[in-house]
C-alpha cells in the first residue's frame, strides 16, 4: 500500500467519511433491534428485509422536513452546532489504527488529538442547547457541561495510566505493545497495573457519560427535558445530532479497543488484522446498547456522586499504583 500522498489522503478521507456515515446510520438500526431483542420483540421488520431499509427511510423522512430556526434563537450558533458535533468522530477516526497498516494518520500525538477534539462534542451540545433559547435546552446545557467536566477527569486519569506504562501517545505503538495472547491487553495486564480491569471499567463508564449515553443521557433525558439540548431542532439538524451520537459512540469504542483491548491484535497471538479490531469495537458498541437497555437513567446527583466520590478517587489511586509499580519493577 504505497499510494502517492494525495491519493492516499483522498482514499482515507472518503473511507472514513463513508465508514462513519454508514456506521452511524446502521447503528441507528442496531439500536432498536438490540432494544427489541432485549425486550423479546423483533424490532423494526417492515422496511426492507429485517428492517434494513429503516435508516434510509428515516433519513428520507428527516430530509423532507423543514429545518425550522425558531425566532429568537442565535441563528449562527444554532446552525453551527450540528456541524460541530460530527467533528470529533470524523477527525478522531483519522488516527485510529484499524490494522497495522490501515491508519490514515500515523502520528505520535494521536491519543492527544482524539481527546482534544473529543471535547468539541461537549461544546457542540452546549452551543446547541444555549442557542436554542429554550428552558429545557438550557437545563440540558448545564447538565452536559457539569457531567462532562466530571467524567473527563477520571477518563483522562485512567488514560494516563495507560500512557505511563506504554510510554507513547502513538495509538499504533500502543497497540503494538499489546502483542501476544489476550492477557497482554492493557485491560488484563495486572502485572503492570494491578487494577487494570478497573481502569478499563472506569474508561468505559466515562465513555458512556462523555457520549451522553444511557444510563447517563442527562443531556437528552426525554422523560424530563422533552429532548434536552435538541428540543428545538427539526429535520436533518436533529438527524445530524442523532447520527453524531452513534458516531461518537463508535469513536469511543474504537479508542477503548485501541487502549485496552489490544486494537488489531488477535486474542490468540496470531492472525492479527483489521477484523479483530472491528470485532472488538462492535462488541463494545453492542455492550453500549446492552447497558442502555439494562439500566435506567441515573439521577443527576447520582451521576455526579459516582464521578467525584468513586471514579475520580479510584482512578487517582490506580494512577498512583501504576506509577509506583513502574518505579519499583
Amino acid at each position: 500500500m504505497s499510494l502517492p500522498e494525495p491519493f492516499r489522503l483522498a482514499a482515507f478521507v472518503l473511507g472514513i467519511l463513508s465508514f462513519v456515515g454508514l456506521n452511524a446510520a446502521y447503528l441507528v438500526w442496531v439500536e432498536p433491534n438490540g432494544a427489541g431483542r432485549f425486550q423479546r420483540r423483533p424490532g423494526p421488520t417492515e422496511a426492507g428485509p429485517a428492517g434494513l431499509l429503516q435508516p434510509i427511510a428515516d433519513a428520507l423522512k428527516l430530509m423532507s422536513k423543514q429545518l425550522i430556526v425558531p425566532p429568537g434563537v442565535d441563528a449562527t450558533l444554532f446552525r453551527t452546532a450540528p456541524v460541530l458535533v460530527m467533528i470529533p468522530a470524523l477527525v478522531g477516526l483519522a488516527v485510529i489504527p484499524f490494522s497495522e497498516k490501515l491508519v490514515a494518520l500515523d502520528v505520535n500525538f494521536g491519543l492527544l488529538l482524539v481527546f482534544a477534539l473529543g471535547s468539541i462534542n461537549v461544546i457542540a451540545v452546549m452551543l446547541a442547547a444555549w442557542s436554542s433559547r429554550n428552558k429545557y435546552a438550557i437545563i440540558a446545557a448545564a447538565r452536559v457541561v457539569s457531567q462532562n467536566i466530571a467524567y473527563e477527569i477520571p477518563m483522562l486519569l485512567v488514560v494516563i495510566t495507560v500512557i505511563l506504562s506504554s510510554g507513547t501517545l502513538n495509538l499504533n505503538e500502543i497497540v503494538r505493545q499489546q502483542e501476544g495472547w489476550f492477557w497482554n491487553w492493557n485491560a488484563f495486564k495486572v502485572w503492570v497495573n494491578p487494577l487494570a480491569p478497573f481502569t478499563f471499567l472506569i474508561f468505559f463508564t466515562c465513555m458512556l457519560a462523555e457520549t451522553n449515553r444511557a444510563p447517563f443521557d442527562m443531556a437528552e433525558a426525554e422523560s424530563e427535558l422533552v429532548a434536552g439540548a435538541y428540543t428545538e431542532y427539526s429535520s436533518m439538524g436533529f438527524g445530524v445530532f442523532f447520527m453524531a451520537e452513534y458516531a461518537n459512540i463508535l469513536l469511543g469504542c474504537a479508542i477503548g479497543t485501541v487502549l485496552f483491548l489490544g486494537g488489531w491484535q488477535s486474542p490468540i497471538g496470531m492472525f492479527s488484522g483489521a477484523i479483530w479490531f472491528l470485532l472488538k469495537m462492535y462488541f463494545l458498541v453492542f455492550t453500549v446498547v446492552w447497558i442502555r437497555w439494562t439500566f435506567p437513567r441515573t439521577q443527576f446527583y447520582g451521576l455526579l456522586n459516582l464521578s467525584w466520590k468513586i471514579l475520580i478517587p479510584v482512578s487517582l489511586f490506580t494512577l498512583l499504583l501504576s506509577s509506583a509499580m513502574l518505579k519499583l519493577l
Binding site: G34, G36, R37, F38, Q39, R40, R41, P42, W290, I291, W293, T294, F295
Partner: peptide, 15 residues
Amino acid sequence: GMGITLRQFFKPTIT
C-alpha cells in the same frame, strides 16, 4: 443485571 438482560436477548421473541 446485565446477565439477566443478556439471557433475555438470546431467547426467542414472543411478538
